[in-house]
Write a protein that binds this DNA or RNA. Structure first.
Lengths: 338, 338
DNA sequence: TTGTAGGCGTTATCAA
DNA sequence: TTGATAACGCCTACAA
C-alpha cells in the first residue's frame, strides 16, 4: 500500500558506493568531495529519508519523548506542552502526548504504554498517591522529569512554580488591604500543589499576626464545579469572608459563575484573586487579580533538563527547579476600611 | 544505560522453545497448552515486551498516528485531540501531537517530520493556502483525515462542523429578535471556516429579506486582538450594529474585552453571540449566547475514520462529515422594539 | 505444532 | 576513505 521510500541500499546503488559509506555520510562522517556530491544528488533524486525504525533498532533510541498530563482540556498543561514540543522538535525528538484524565489507573496504564513505545524519556505531571509504577519506570533508567508536582518518594528532576510563595504573596496583598477573613478555595487535599498553596496561605497569616480560621480553608477538586460550590458555601456562612483566593484556573471560573449568579458585587461585597490565564482575567469585569505562573519557562526548563539527561549528563541530579510566579492585582481586589 | 528488556530470544531460552513459536504465541497463533503456560510464565518473569521498533521494521507499520493542529493553546483543538488520543490508544496507536503555530511553513515542516517518523496516518487541521505539501503526503498513500477545515483541491476524508448553518441559525436568532444591523466578526478571509460562516450570515439575511451591509462584515485573525479591534471599530461607526456575531472563541474573548472597556451594556446597547466554550459563556455576565460545536463527536468521528482507513477499508472515500452545531441563546441577546 | 533461516534498514567494527 | 559483514529484535514462509 504505502509507498516504500528509498533506502540506503538504493542510494548506494545509485552512487555506486557501498552502504557503509552512505551511512557514514548520513551520520556526519568524511567522504570524498565527489562522492559527497553524488550522494547528495541521490538523496534528493530518490527522496531518501532515514528509516527511524531501523535506526532505532540499532541504536536503541527512538528519538521520542512521552508527555503525560492530567488533562488535555487544561490550558495550563497544554500551554506547557506547546513549548516542550517545540523545543524537543528542534533537537529531533518527537513528542507523544497522553492525558490520564485525572485517573491514577489511567496514569499507570499510559505510562506503561509509553514505556512499550520505548520513549527515550518522559515528562509527567504526576498524579500523586501510589507512585510505584513511576518508580518502576525509573528503575528501567528512563529519564523522567516531573512538572508542576513533586513526588518526594522518587528521586527525580522536577520543574514547578513556587506555589508556596505564590499563595503567600497573593494573600498578603489581601491582608495589606485590610482583609482579615480570607477564604481559600484549595485543590484536592492530597495533591502537592494544594499543600504548598495552603502552606503559603497559613504562613502569611502567621507572619502578619492574622488568625487562621480553619473554616475558611476549603478543599475542592480543581474543577469548575467545586469552585462554584465552594464559593456558594462561603456566601452562606454566618460570617462570610471578605475576600477569596482561588488556587487554579478552573475553580476560578466556577467561583466567578457563583458570584455572578448571586449578584455579588466585586470588589465591594467581596474581593477575589484567581489563578492563571491572563486572557480570562482581562475579560472578566471588573478585571480579575490573578497569580500568573511562568508557563513558558516551565516548559522550556523541563525540556532542557530532559535533553540534558538524554545526553546522559546527570549533573545536578535530581534538580528541583522552583520558578517564581507573578501577582497581578487588578480591580477585583478592594480595600477594607476599619 | 537503559536496561534492555527481554526479547523473544530470552523467552525462547527460558521456555526451551524456539523463537518462532514464541512469536506465533504473541501474535495469537496456536501453541500447546503446556507451552502456552510456560510462555506466559516466562513473559511475566522476564517482563517481556514486544519491541515495536523491530516489529515495525518488519511489518512496515509504526502504530503511530500524527496529529497536527494550528495551536496547542487553543482549547477547541486540544479538546478534540483529547478524544482522538483516547480512542486511538484503545486500538494500540500512539499519538504524536504537533502544533504549527498558525504558520504555513511550520505546517509543512512538521508534516514532513511526521512523515519521517513514519506515522501510519495523519489527522490535520489544514492551514489552507498552499497545500502541495499535503498532496505530497497523500501521494505516499498515507491516510489523512482533515478536521475543521476542508481543502477542496485534495481528495480526503474530512470532519467538520456545519459552519454555514451554524452561522445561519445564530444570525437568524438575532433577526427574529428584530435586529437588522448585525455585525459579524469573521476569521481570516482565506480560511475555510470563515467563508462558510460568512456564507451563512449572508444567506440568512437574504432569506429574511434583510439587506446585507458589507461594512458590517469584518475579517479578523481568529485571535483575541482582532476580536478586540474589530469590536472597537464597530462601536466607532456612525451607525453601529445593534448586535454582533463573533465566529470563534478567541475573538469572542477579545470582543468582550472591548465591550467591557467601553462600558457597553449587554444586551441593552448591543447584543452578542459568541462561539465555542460553554464554560466561558457561563462565566461572563450577562450569560453569553454561543454557537456550540460538537467537539467530542468531531474527535471521535475523525479517529474512527482514520482507524478504518488504517485497516485499508476505503469504503465511502473521500467522506465529508459535516456535524451539526447547537445554538444556545442566553441573556446576551436582546430584542429590538421597532 | 514447532523449528530453521532469511530479511526488514540501519549502524558499527574491522580490513583493505 | 571505503567496503564487507555481523548484529539489532521481530516476522514469516517453509520444512520438519
Amino acid at each position: 500500500m504505502r509507498k516504500i521510500s528509498a533506502t540506503i541500499k538504493d542510494v548506494a546503488k545509485y552512487t555506486g558506493l557501498s552502504i557503509a559509506t552512505i551511512s557514514k555520510y548520513i551520520n556526519g562522517g568524511n567522504v570524498l568531495d565527489k562522492n559527497r556530491k553524488k550522494i547528495e544528488e541521490a538523496i534528493k533524486v530518490l527522496d531518501f529519508r532515514v528509516n527511524e525504525l531501523a535506526r532505532g533498532l540499532k541504536t536503541n533510541r527512538t528519538m521520542t519523548v512521552g508527555v503525560l498530563i492530567p488533562s488535555l482540556k487544561n490550558i495550563f498543561f497544554t500551554s506547557i506542552i506547546s513549548n516542550v514540543e517545540n523545543i524537543l522538535l528542534k533537537h529531533g525528538y518527537s513528542t507523544i502526548v497522553c492525558d490520564y484524565r485525572e485517573s491514577s489507573n489511567l496514569e499507570k496504564e499510559k505510562l506503561n504504554f509509553l514505556v512499550n513505545k520505548m520513549v527515550d524519556g518522559i515528562i509527567v505531571v504526576p498524579h500523586g498517591g501510589d507512585v510505584s509504577h513511576i518508580q518502576d519506570v525509573r528503575d528501567k533508567n528512563i529519564p523522567i522529569v516531573f512538572i508542576d508536582r513533586m513526588i518526594k518518594e522518587i528521586d527525580c528532576d522536577v520543574v514547578l512554580s513556587d506555589n508556596l510563595n505564590a499563595a503567600y504573596e497573593a494573600v498578603e496583598q489581601l491582608i495589606i488591604r485590610g482583609h482579615r477573613r480570607i477564604g481559600i478555595i484549595a485543590g484536592p487535599k492530597d495533591v502537592y500543589t494544594t499543600k504548598e498553596r495552603v502552606k503559603g496561605y497559613i504562613r502569611v497569616h502567621e507572619d502578619h499576626d492574622v488568625n487562621v480560621d480553619e473554616s475558611l480553608i476549603k478543599y475542592g477538586d480543581y474543577d469548575i464545579k467545586s469552585g462554584y460550590n465552594i464559593l456558594q458555601k462561603f456566601i452562606e456562612m454566618d460570617s462570610p469572608p471578605t475576600s477569596i483566593f482561588v488556587t487554579n484556573y478552573e475553580m476560578t471560573l466556577g467561583a466567578i459563575m457563583a458570584i455572578n449568579e448571586n449578584d455579588i458585587k466585586i470588589p465591594d461585597q467581596m474581593s477575589l484573586v484567581g489563578f492563571d490565564n491572563i486572557q480570562m482575567a482581562k475579560v472578566v469585569k471588573p478585571s480579575l487579580s490573578i497569580v500568573v505562573q511562568p508557563i513558558e519557562q516551565i516548559g522550556e526548563t523541563a525540556a532542557n533538563i530532559l535533553l540534558k539527561r538524554l545526553k546522559n549528563d546527570y549533573e545536578g541530579f535530581p534538580s528541583t527547579n522552583r520558578l517564581k510566579t507573578e501577582i497581578m492585582i487588578k480591580d477585583s481586589v478592594g480595600t477594607i476600611r476599619s
